[in-house]
Simulated assay, not measured.
Amino acid sequence: MTKVNVLTADDDGVTRIFGEVKWFDPVKGFGFVVSEEGGPDILLHANVLRNYGQSSVADAARVEIGIQETDRGVQAVEVYRIDPPTQQLAIPLSDFQDLDEETIRSAPLEPARVKWFDKGKGFGFANVFGNSDDIFLHIEVLRRSGLADLQPGEALALRVIEGRRGSMATEVQAWENAAILDGDMFED
Rank of each mutant, 00 (worst) to 15 (best):
E154D: 11
D133P: 03
A60N: 14
S145A: 13
A155H: 13
G122P: 06
A126E: 00
R72W: 06
D25N: 15
V74D: 05
G29C: 01
I139F: 02
Y52A: 12
K22S: 15
R81P: 01
R62K: 15
V21D: 01
F32H: 06
Q68V: 11
Q75C: 12
G122R: 07
V79L: 06
N131P: 04
L49I: 13
D95N: 15
S132D: 13
Q88E: 13
V27F: 09
F30N: 01
P85A: 09
V21G: 03
V141Y: 03
G130S: 03
F32A: 01
F117D: 00
A61T: 05
N131F: 05
Q54P: 04
E154T: 07
D95V: 14
A46M: 13
E64S: 12
A126Y: 01
D25M: 03
Q151K: 14
L49R: 08
G73P: 06
V114G: 02
D133G: 08
D118N: 15
I82G: 02
I161T: 09
Q88P: 05
S94R: 15
R81T: 10
D100Q: 09
G146A: 06
D118Y: 08
N131V: 09
Q68C: 11
P84E: 07
I104L: 13
H138A: 11
T103M: 09
L99Y: 11
G29S: 04
F117E: 00
S145F: 05
V27L: 13
P85E: 04
N51E: 15
E110D: 12
K115N: 08
D98Y: 12
I139Y: 05
L137D: 00
A155W: 08
E36L: 13
L142A: 01
D118Q: 09
P111V: 09
A58Q: 08
V79Y: 00
Y80I: 08
G146D: 03
R105Q: 12
A112R: 01
E78D: 14
F123M: 10
D133N: 14
F32K: 01
D25A: 07
P40M: 12
A61Q: 04
A76M: 03
K121P: 00
D134K: 11
Y52T: 11
E37C: 11
G38T: 01
G31V: 03
L93S: 09
T103G: 05
Q88F: 10
A155M: 14
A46P: 04
L43I: 10
E101Y: 05
Y80D: 07
E37I: 13
V34W: 00
S145D: 07
G130N: 04
A58L: 02
F136I: 03
L158R: 00
L99K: 12
P152Y: 08
L43A: 08
L43Q: 11
K119P: 01
F136M: 06
E36G: 07
R50H: 08
I91T: 15
E64N: 07
I104E: 05
I135M: 02
P26C: 07
A58I: 02
A90C: 11
S94T: 12
T86R: 15
H138M: 07
N47E: 14
V79M: 08
K22I: 11
V114Q: 02
R144G: 11
Q87I: 14
D149R: 03
W116C: 01
D41Y: 04
A58V: 04
L43K: 05
L109T: 11
